[in-house]
Amino acid sequence: MSDALPSQVKEPVIELRPESFGRNIVLALKDIFNGFKLWRLGWNLGWLDIKLRYRGSILGPFWITASTAVMIAAMGVLYAFLFHTNLREYLPFLTLSLVLWGYLNGILSDGCNSFTQAENLILSIRLPYSVYIWRIVVRNFLILLHNLLVVIVVFLIFRIVPQQIYLLIPVTFIWFLNSIALCILLGSLGTRFRDIPPVINSLTQIFFFITPIIWKPTLIFVNRQYMLLNPFYPLLEIFRGPILGETLRPSIWIFALGYSLLLWLIALLIFSKTRFRIAYWM
């Protein structure tokens, strides 16, 4: 298509050879960066996943919204009765928690299959592996957006004004970074060890009950600090607490940031050890 002489065209050069550990860390970071530059591709792949799943149905992607709304209505009434709390106080809390947990759950279960799901693509075109990570994060972000409608409606019904909105910016950023790290970590491990997806699935079920999602953290009176050992608690709390107008203890912030940092270190380590092997494991 271009009429320029071949010698004038800048030609991409790929050099592939076994690399040292340090070099592999650089390559892993480059992969993440190059995937970031291809964000339009990742965005489209994620969006297509949603679009295709609901193509032909009447509500389309709003089935996501509808099913969440039904679940929250049912659970809200039941648990408000069981916990002897009033609906006005409990339902906004439950809605926000369940929607956020739904996102986390999606990242955890889809993340394990980030690469195995893209087997055909990985074996037919050379792309940064992080493109497939973007796809998962975008897909789950779009689901989250649909579910946010439920949160908005519930907040409107109970006339709840979200507090400390400005905190949403850094917190969303932390969640976003952690989502990527989680997918990288679980995706790499899940490709090599096919037992990872079912293990993660059963673990998330346990965490759904031991993390304050359907019950309020204030229900625990003694040894509350032990809850911080559950990484999902502080990470959930930094998102949920400020919106509901709570002031968080500093320890929650410290643990949330600490867990995030740890997650990234492990993800980067595992990714640099597995990146060049992923295609072989397909």
Binding site: E11, P12, E15, R17, P18, N120, S124, I125, R126
Partner: peptide, 22 residues
């Protein structure tokens, strides 16, 4: 095509690449 990165030996590819593998 750069899909399997070598564990032994090396490959150098210069130029734009399109592959019809599947």
């Amino acid at each position: 095509a750069g899909i399997y990165e070598p564990i032994q030996g090396n490959i150098r590819i210069q130029g734009t690449l399109s592959s019809l593998l599947e």
